[in-house]
Design a binder for these strands. Sequence first.
DNA 1: GCGACAG
DNA 2: ATCTTGTCGC
Length: 217
Amino acid sequence: MIPVNFSIEKARLAQKKIAEKVVERDEIELPLRLAAGVDVAYKNDKAFAAGVVVDVQTLSPVEVSVTEVEVKFPYIPTLLAFREVWPAFKALKKLRSTYQVLFVDGNGRLHPYKAGFACHLGVVVGKPTIGVAKKLLMGSVERLSDKLGMVIYNGEVLAYAVKLGRSRRDIYISVGNKLTLNTALKLAISLTKSNASLPEPIRLAHIYATSARKRNS
DNA sequence: GCGACAG
DNA sequence: ATCTTGTCGC
């Protein structure tokens, strides 16, 4: 399943280039009306990616796209992007709506090479992107309150640990591209329904990707 | 060398 | 991520 021409060295070089292209300034086009989310589900060697566009005001989905592709890379910690970027990109490509910000399931700058999946996809798509991870990949959490904490690695704040909605579990928000960590946190919070534990774009994308996987089983 | 390790 | 049953709660 690993491409014949693959090597850790080449992957690290690619991640180094991606990391250099990440912009950590707010470049969100206003007014912010639509937000997208992507997620990928798997069934053996098939990947089912779903892209969802949500209205920022109502948090209701206005468009959904689903794509099925062959899995061509295994899951390897720190190399998640190489497995999910293509399916996710293909699903986003099918959306006709113009969204201003994108939510990705996985880390952005909270990555050993500061080039997590959210950065990788964010650079490829060229839009403001937010990384949302449900588990901590690296770093330590410095609590600011029960609901919020900073994830620090090498003396740098690379993510926020935050409990959304009524959840008592932390999720980790980091910069994917074209926005600030503070903006990423603010948007993640404002796009989360009071009874949910994840921002709507991601929550819905997960539901659609999973249902697509089941339908095609 | 050992253990950890997004989805 | 995926594999899995019942079960607690709104």
